[in-house]
Design a protein around this nucleic acid. Structure first.
Length: 231
DNA sequence: GCGACAG
DNA sequence: ATCTTGTCGC
């Protein structure tokens, strides 16, 4: 088990107050660092994603630790908890973060960089689940989403690795990255301790022949119950 | 007021 | 996210 200090104050219990939750997001967004604050020579990275069981009553979070050099999975874990609240656009992290943090504690090694399925700062109040995850754990994080929540962008070229900025209210909040030709682009945004200029490159480093980068792709497979097994 | 809306 | 087989296109 890792001994990562999770900031409980950054993960308030859901009390049904939407307006209040949004205020909390604005405050937590103020703690996000958009400068590279990680070891240049990454040793281990991790992917996180969430799925549901029992008609949504159970939230299932998957955490996969990989060797940053070989991209080979070193550990895979699944955490199940009772679902805490329904899905509300813009408040995704309040619903899924508790399970993700539980999965994080199952890792035997603290990852140097975390990739979360969802947005980083590409969010109405700049606190998508990846950013929230970073602030709550202090770990460098990046958001890898499949669809835009807010903002507009042009179409990135069809070549693998092409990317264009995603903007919202006059500022850049992320990138549209063509990880694979003829596939819809990924929406990549910094979570915490990662610079905008580094985000797309960091994700592309772990893309092989699939649309999703290995960390998120493997976690996705574990989170959705269509998994073949372990090792 | 009318849509849009990560997973 | 989830319910679900085959099928069209590269």
């Amino acid at each position: 088990m890792t001994t990562i200090a999770i900031d409980s104050s950054a993960v308030p219990a859901w009390d049904g107050d939407v307006a209040r939750a949004r205020d909390v997001q604005v405050e937590l967004a103020g703690r996000v660092s958009l400068r590279d604050g990680f070891d240049k020579s990454l040793r281990t990275i991790a992917g996180f994603d969430v799925g549901f069981e029992e008609d949504g009553a159970i939230t299932r979070a998957a955490a996969v630790l990989l060797d940053a050099r070989t991209m080979q999975p070193l550990e895979s874990h699944v955490a199940r908890i009772d679902t805490v609240m329904p899905y509300i656009p813009g408040l995704l992290s309040f619903r899924e973060l508790p399970a993700l943090l539980r999965a994080l504690t199952l890792l035997g090694t603290t990852p140097d960089m975390v990739f979360v399925d969802g947005h980083g700062i590409a969010h109405p109040r700049r606190l998508g689940i990846a950013a929230h995850f970073g602030v709550a754990t202090g770990l460098p994080s990046i958001g890898v989403a499949k669809k835009i929540l807010v903002g507009t962008a042009s179409e990135p070229h069809q070549v693998r690795g092409a990317y264009v900025p995603l903007r919202h209210k006059g500022e850049q909040i992320g990138w549209l990255l063509r990880s694979k030709p003829k596939c819809n682009p990924l929406i990549v945004s910094p979570g915490h301790r990662v610079a905008m200029a580094s985000a797309a490159d960091l994700v592309m480093r772990y893309v092989t022949t699939y649309r999703l980068p290995e960390p998120t792709r493997l976690a996705d497979r574990l989170a959705s119950r269509r998994d073949a097994g372990k090792a």
